[in-house]
Amino acid sequence: MLELRLLQGGLLKKVLEAMKDLVNDANFDCSPTGFSLQAMDSSHVALVSLLLRSEGFEHYRCDRNVSMGMNLNNMAKMLRCAGNDDIVTLKADDGSDCITFMFENPSQDKIADFEMKLMDIDSEHLGIPDAEYQSIVRMPAAEFARICRDLSTIGDTVLISVSKEGVQFSTRGDMGTANIVCRRTTTVDKPEEDVIIEMEEPVSLTFALRYLNSFTKATPLATQVTISMSSDLPMVIEYRIEGMGYIRYYLAPKIDE
C-alpha cells in the first residue's frame, strides 16, 4: 500500500513540468526515505535525479519499496488538472497496475480522482560518484534561465568558464558571438540575488544549450540554482526544493575531437 499526501500539490505539478520534456518514461522509486526518480534522456547525454523526502509530505505511507513506471507526459497531463493550491494524494495498492492521483481543493468541497496506468520500464540505475567539484557557482535561477535562453538565439553550445571573479557564458553562431559575465557579488542583504563562487580550480567546459534550456524548466521550483563543474565530469545543475529535496540535472560535456 502506497499513500503519499502532499499539501502543496502545485509543487508536484512543477516537478513534472521540469522533467517531461527531457524524459518520456521513467520509474518512480518509493521507499521509506522518499519519492525519487533517476532517468536519462533518450540520447543518454543528460540524467535527471529527483528526490522528494518523506518528511516533506503531510502523510507518507510506503509499506515496501516499489518502483512504478510512468509516462511523464501523461502524468503531467493529469497533474495539470489539479489546482495549484490543491492537496495531491498519490495512491497505489500492492501489485496494482495503476496509480491514483487524488486532488482536493483548499476548501475541501471538490475532490477529484484520476487513475493512470503504470508501465513496465526496463531501467538501470547509474552510480553517481560523490565528487568534489572544482568550481561551484550559485546564482539566481531566473538569471541562469535568461542567459541560456538568450545565448541559444545566437548559438547551439555554451562555453562556461569559472574563475574567482565570476562566471562567463560564451557562444558563437553564424551571425556572431555573445559573452555574458556574471561577477561574484558581495552583498549580504539580498542573498537570493547573489552570485556565489566556490572555486578550487578554474574550469572551462562546453555544453549543448538545448539541454540547459530544458533544465531551466525547473526554475519555478527554486530561487537559486547551483552549477557544479569539474573538468572530468558531467556538470550538475541543482534546484533545491525547499523542505522536500532536490531536482538535479547531470549533463555530459562536449569534448574536443
Binding site: 536519462m40 540520447s43 543518454h44 547525454v45 543528460a46 540524467l47 538501470e124 540505475h125 547509474l126 552510480g127 553517481i128 560518484p129 553550445t157 562546453t206 549543448a208 572530468d232 565530469l233 558531467p234 547531470y250 555530459a252 560535456p253 562536449k254 569534448i255 574536443d256 575531437e257
Partner: peptide, 14 residues
Amino acid sequence: GSKQSTITKFFGKA
C-alpha cells in the same frame, strides 16, 4: 569541432 559525450561514459551501472 567538439563531440557530445554521454553520461554513461562517466557513470557506470549502480
